[in-house]
Write a protein that binds this DNA or RNA. Structure first.
Lengths: 202, 202
DNA sequence: CCGCGAGTGGACTTGACAGCCCAACCTAAC
DNA sequence: GTTAGGTTGGGCTGTCAAGTCCACTCGCGG
């Protein structure tokens, strides 16, 4: 692993992406190494060459890959929550993202089966949640400074609640196929931010 | 299965509860039929006698069992959301319940591994969410009628958002071990209910 | 042209688990 | 007490997937 030629790195990446695709479609439990091998046209030896830790190490790599995608898919909106229309389009993007991908939250599935308890998997998740929440909180503080949001709110707590609502909404979407809860959580969470400032629409 | 003597029913129940306990402790993936058999002092033939569908049928039964517990554990508070102190003690009970049980949400684990896509598993979840949300919405409507909650809120939407927040809070708790998100979601959700009525404390 | 190490292919080993089977037992009704 | 059927014990087997191993190829520097 120390020396990776360009070709090697490409193969490794191909394995990760193939595994991620298969997991998104069939779930973690229904994804075997052989499946990934077949779909990426690689062989067992390559798998263990690039992921000496075997299945677990691969799953962890996939989790990291998907974690990056989660936030990337919300850009640029997530980083520019500087006006209510911007919040609105971010909200739409989140809903759209999850509505589009059937009913699999890659992170949740990878996490739950890959061992939510292993320190590695945990670290990936903690980091993702932290970054996500930080970006939301930044947006809230911006709106507060601009006098557009209730200044009495604790930005971090509000961001926590909003993030929890999103997570739960996605979870329920996975279970039921409906996005109503996700939308309700987002709409109510955002409405609460502007509640302190009785103005404009609503 | 049509005829079940009292003894048979007891054995069946023992298997379900044993499986539920093992799953809570080790997760679904790490729970084999042999584990359950060993822990409940039963044999293979009994397992397949009472659960002809094998592992999947057992998991489904466990899911149903756990789903009932989820709501039962919130009683009597959940059914009596008729004053703000009552909401508060319900909120505390929810937090306490999940804080107490380590970091396993039995439902989520069973669901994700047992096949979130199978119609049976889905039905259990949909039903649980519906009942949960209905009880919350009933509480909200009660507070609205009593003039204690913002009458402008759509009770069902507010209940959806609150439920999503709870689910997400639990999920994050499972992943990180912290209950801060769950608490934030509950506190903010309840605060929003009373926002329309500027009175008493806060 | 040689050789070394990265990259590759796929057969093989190992182990674990789901599900099947039959023989034995208990219980209750008659 | 006899019988029918629910109940139980646990061995057995087929399957399947993770991980190992060895032989081979390829690319590149010397």
């Amino acid at each position: 692993m120390r020396t990776l030629t360009r070709k090697g790195a490409a193969t490794r990446q191909r394995i990760i992406e193939g595994a991620a695709a298969h997991i998104r479609e069939f779930g973690v439990a229904a994804t075997t190494l052989d499946d990934v091998l077949a779909m990426t046209a690689t062989s067992k030896s390559q798998m263990f060459h690039y992921f000496p830790g075997g299945r677990e190490e691969l799953l962890l790599a996939v989790a990291g890959y998907e974690a990056d995608r989660v936030l990337d898919d919300q850009r640029p909106e997530l980083g520019e929550l500087t006006s209510w229309p911007a919040w609105r389009s971010w909200r739409d993007k989140v809903v759209e993202r999850y509505r589009g991908q059937g009913e699999q939250c890659p992170i949740n599935t990878v996490l739950s089966a890959a061992g939510a308890h292993t320190p590695g998997a945990r670290a990936v998740l903690v980091e993702l949640m932290r970054r996500w929440q930080d970006e939301i909180a930044t947006g809230i503080r911006h709106m507060q400074r601009a006098g557009e949001a209730d200044p009495g709110l604790d930005a971090d707590q509000a961001a926590s609640a909003l993030l929890a609502g999103i997570q739960g909404g996605v979870l329920i979407h996975m279970a039921t196929g409906q996005t109503t809860h996700l939308e309700a959580a987002l709409d109510n969470g955002i409405a609460q931010l502007r509640a302190g400032k009785p103005s404009s629409d609503r």
